[in-house]
Design a protein around this nucleic acid. Structure first.
Lengths: 156, 156
DNA sequence: ATTGAAATATGTTCGTA
DNA sequence: TACGAACATATTTCAAT
């Protein structure tokens, strides 16, 4: 990792390499090398530098939850009692596998979470038996995603 | 891809393989093979089957936007005029690279989007000069993520 | 479904420019 | 930085069980 506030500068070749790998992390380096007309060793060296800079935080296999029967995604705004500390709430939310994201936000709520459930019944159970049961949670507002139309990373 | 409504069943070995690759898409298959005590050829075959089933939607390099100076993430609820069709709004949003996610949601708004900006000024510019300028957008509500505390995929 | 072995391709290191 | 060559690993295919 690099120093906290140093910004990384990418040249055109870095960007080309990253665009390939952001779309497909398993794309062979040598194949990318042939595509952009540079040696594999050079790409290898650049990737090592980018990793050391902290820009690359890893790679992931992306799985399609629908194929496992998870078809209901929702955002839930959570109001916490004044007494309830955010870290304790987050700790409780971490234990719920359906919770994929958790943000401490400005605005109406204390916390905004994204959840993934099999169906509406599963979501209802999650709300009533898991989320609402967390000590300090006073009220929730749920927004079901009927359709996710954009899903991408930062563009470089 | 498999047939629309067929659900995939994973056995323990599939899950082990996927857990490795969901954490690190470039982990060599042979290394996973040695870890779980099965041949590389067997893993290769299982992955091919999982890919054919539609469960694997690919792999991605994950980059850390902070290192590029993008430190402000926000969710924006968008109210659309009755006359405005969702698809046209989505088309306009697709052209804005700061928009990382877009959901058609139940509840207050028509659309909920996630955006990534360099700072608050950038976010303000995005709101006033880009989002609000889209024809049919009547009002927005912004929630800045002060801290993302959970970020993960479905657990298998 | 799984295996080992063979053939092919890739990852990695290093000396040099 | 980039290169090519050499070496170490990994991927992929296949016949056999």
């Amino acid at each position: 990792m690099n120093k906290p506030n140093s910004l990384v500068k990418l040249d055109g070749i870095d960007k080309k390499i990253l665009r390939f790998l952001m779309k497909d992390a398993r794309r062979p380096i040598l194949e990318i090398a042939r595509n952009i007309g540079i040696s594999g060793a050079a790409i290898h060296q650049r990737l090592k530098k980018l990793e050391a800079s902290g820009l690359l935080s890893g790679s992931k296999f992306v799985i399609n939850p629908k194929v496992l029967g998870y078809t209901t995604m929702a955002y839930i705004g959570i109001f916490l009692d004044k007494a309830m500390s955010n870290p304790r709430a987050v700790k409780a939310l971490e234990k719920i596998p359906e919770v994929l994201e958790c943000h401490y936000t400005t605005g109406n709520w204390s916390i905004l979470i994204k959840v993934l459930c099999k169906d509406n019944e599963h979501l209802m159970h999650l709300l009533n038996k898991e989320i609402q049961q967390i000590e300090g949670v006073s009220r929730t507002e749920t927004f079901i995603s009927l359709n996710q139309q954009i899903n991408r990373q930062i563009s470089i």
